[in-house]
């Protein structure tokens, strides 16, 4: 038995769905603004791929042809414009993206591609597991320097942050060279030729003889370098 069914009219069900769209708000000159877009694309290619983009023209006064050119320029960069807002309807051609209204602002969290580039942890300390010998120069302006051993007479350590010497400091130690006056110098035995923090220095002659051969630290108190025993 054949059951012939009469095609029934399917009811259209309308559902709502919301997406977060990037809002592009061009500013004059448009050429300069496009260069900014290019720079963003260069640092994270494909950042706008598959993302809805809305063009907010409220900040500029563009003619119909200028709007057409702008949309074309974005298409040329593989950016598809979902809709346009902030402009009168009569300035848009039928072939252009539709005029939107009622958008609400929200915070956009930047996802994957750009974050991965920034995820690299910044190295801010340098560890040396061998003594620093006479004539060697260790320069590390990014942060602290730690030496497991002695720093020989005629050697020098230059650090952006603090300097820690687990041994005898006989050479020169220059901490906080980037203007970090909070940097300090620590050593197990002080016989330094010169200590400097943020440009303020003392030579061996000026270091109190009673401190010699003892664990000590040096820090800045205003413009005065203080050197005190560590225990």
């Amino acid at each position: 038995m054949r059951d012939t069914a009469k095609p029934m009219r399917q009811q259209v069900r309308l559902r709502g769905r919301s997406y977060v769209a990037f809002v592009f708000a061009p500013v004059v000159p448009i050429v300069g603004w496009l260069e900014e877009i290019d720079a963003t694309l260069a640092s994270s290619p494909g950042f706008f791929v598959g993302k809805p983009v809305v063009l907010d023209l409220s900040g500029v006064d563009l003619s119909r042809s200028a709007i057409a050119h702008l949309v074309g320029s974005l298409v040329a960069r593989n950016i598809r414009v979902l809709g346009i807002e902030g402009v009168e309807a009569d300035r848009l051609e039928p072939s252009m993206p539709p005029l939107l209204s009622g958008g609400r602002s929200c915070v956009i969290t930047r996802t994957e591609p750009l974050e991965k580039r920034e995820a690299k942890p910044k190295v801010n300390s340098l560890l040396l597991e061998t003594p620093v010998r006479s004539g060697q120069s260790i320069i590390f302006t990014e942060g602290d320097v730690t030496v497991l051993g002695s720093v020989g007479s005629g050697a020098e350590i230059v650090a952006g942050g603090s300097i820690h010497v687990y041994g005898t400091l006989r050479g020169r130690a220059m901490a906080g060279v980037n203007g970090n006056s909070a940097a300090r110098i620590y050593c197990q035995k002080i016989e330094a030729e010169l200590l400097a923090i943020d440009g303020y220095y003392q030579t061996a002659e000026e270091i109190d003889a009673s401190l010699r051969n003892r664990p000590a630290q040096a820090w800045l108190q205003g413009e005065i370098m203080r050197i005190t025993p560590l225990n």
Partner: peptide
């Protein structure tokens, strides 16, 4: 003597 020892320290750095 100190001068000899310091020069030796320098040479050790070069050896390394």
């Amino acid at each position: 003597e100190v001068s000899s020892v310091r020069d030796s320290d320098r040479i050790i750095g070069m050896l390394d």
